[in-house]
Each structure stands twice: as structure tokens, then as C-alpha cells.
Simulated assay, not measured.
Amino acid sequence: MTREHTLRQFLDARRAEPFRPSLSDCAMFAADWIVELTGSDPAAPWRGRYNSLDEGRALLARDGFASPAEVLASILVKNAGWMQAQTGDVAVLIEADEEAMGIVGGGHIHVLRPMRGLGAVPLDRAIRIYRP
């Protein structure tokens, strides 16, 4: 199965999933994708342990991470930039003045947003790209 096909199935399974901190937020969305590809859960220490994004950031800070993107940086290979991104890479972008994560799908990034659910933004919004 190709990465594109795997991504389509992954996204289809999440289309109706509501945004819920620690279960279905942008960090868990990216972590779930990494689990899908690798079988390893980078978010295991925090999954289901916070009820708000502020609580999640506090848990990460307690464990020595400034953001969920720092967790990615500790486990994945960073690419040179968005122009070299491939389908299935994990992107870091700024959303509402915070770092957020999504999954590259061609010329856009699939994102999971509060209140709006699954959506997409242009690929050039990425500030960093990681390859799982």
C-alpha cells in the first residue's frame, strides 16, 4: 500500500472525529499518523492526560519540552523545508499564534482544528517538516 493510500484511509477514519484535547488534537493527530506508519507512539506519555491545551503544554514543559513540535524534533528526521516535503510528512505551522502540527498531503497540510475539525492549509504555511 502506498503512503498516499494509507493517508487517505487515515483521514477518512478521522473526518467526523471532534477536536478533544489529549485524544484528538493537532499533536495527537500527528502522533496517531506516526503510530500508523511506525507502530511507535511519540505521545504515549501524554495521551489522555490533559483536558485543555494549556494543561498539555504544562505537562510537556514539566517533561522538558517547550512544545509538541520539540517532541517531533527529538524523534524524527527534519527536512530542509516545505519545498522538499512529501506526502505523509509531518508539518509544523503557526496557527492562532501557537505551534500546530499537521500532515502533508500534496500541496497542502491536513490539520485538525478546534470547532472546525479536519481541514487543510497551504503547504507554504509550514515552518518545519519532519519525515516519519
Rank of each mutant, 00 (worst) to 15 (best):
T2M: 07
T2I: 13
R3M: 10
E4I: 05
H5R: 15
H5D: 10
L7M: 07
L7H: 10
R8F: 07
R8G: 02
Q9V: 02
F10L: 05
D12M: 11
A13G: 09
A13E: 04
R14M: 01
R14Q: 03
R14T: 00
R14A: 02
R15T: 02
E17L: 12
E17K: 10
P18L: 05
F19A: 00
R20W: 01
P21G: 14
P21N: 08
L23H: 05
L23D: 03
D25K: 01
C26F: 08
C26V: 15
A27E: 06
A27Y: 13
A27R: 08
M28N: 08
W33Q: 08
V35C: 02
V35L: 01
E36V: 02
T38V: 14
P42Q: 01
P42R: 05
A44F: 12
A44M: 10
P45S: 04
W46T: 13
R47K: 07
G48Y: 03
R49V: 13
Y50H: 06
Y50S: 04
N51L: 08
S52N: 04
L53M: 07
D54A: 15
E55R: 13
E55G: 08
R57Y: 08
R57I: 14
A58Y: 07
L59M: 06
L59F: 05
L60W: 01
L60C: 06
A61Y: 02
R62A: 15
F65S: 11
A66Y: 03
A66C: 08
S67W: 06
A69V: 15
V71P: 10
L72V: 13
L72K: 07
S74Y: 09
I75G: 01
I75C: 08
L76P: 14
L76Y: 06
K78G: 13
N79F: 11
N79L: 14
G81C: 04
G81H: 06
W82F: 12
M83S: 15
M83W: 11
Q84C: 04
A85D: 06
Q86P: 00
T87K: 13
G88M: 06
D89Y: 12
D89H: 09
L93M: 09
I94K: 01
E95F: 15
E95M: 11
D97H: 05
D97G: 01
E99G: 09
M101Y: 11
G102Q: 04
V104T: 12
G107P: 12
H110V: 12
V111P: 14
V111Y: 00
V111I: 12
R113I: 10
R113Q: 06
P114F: 08
A120L: 01
V121G: 07
P122G: 14
D124W: 04
R125D: 05
R125K: 12
A126Q: 11
I127W: 12
R128E: 15
I129G: 09
Y130A: 06
Y130K: 11
R131G: 11
P132Y: 06
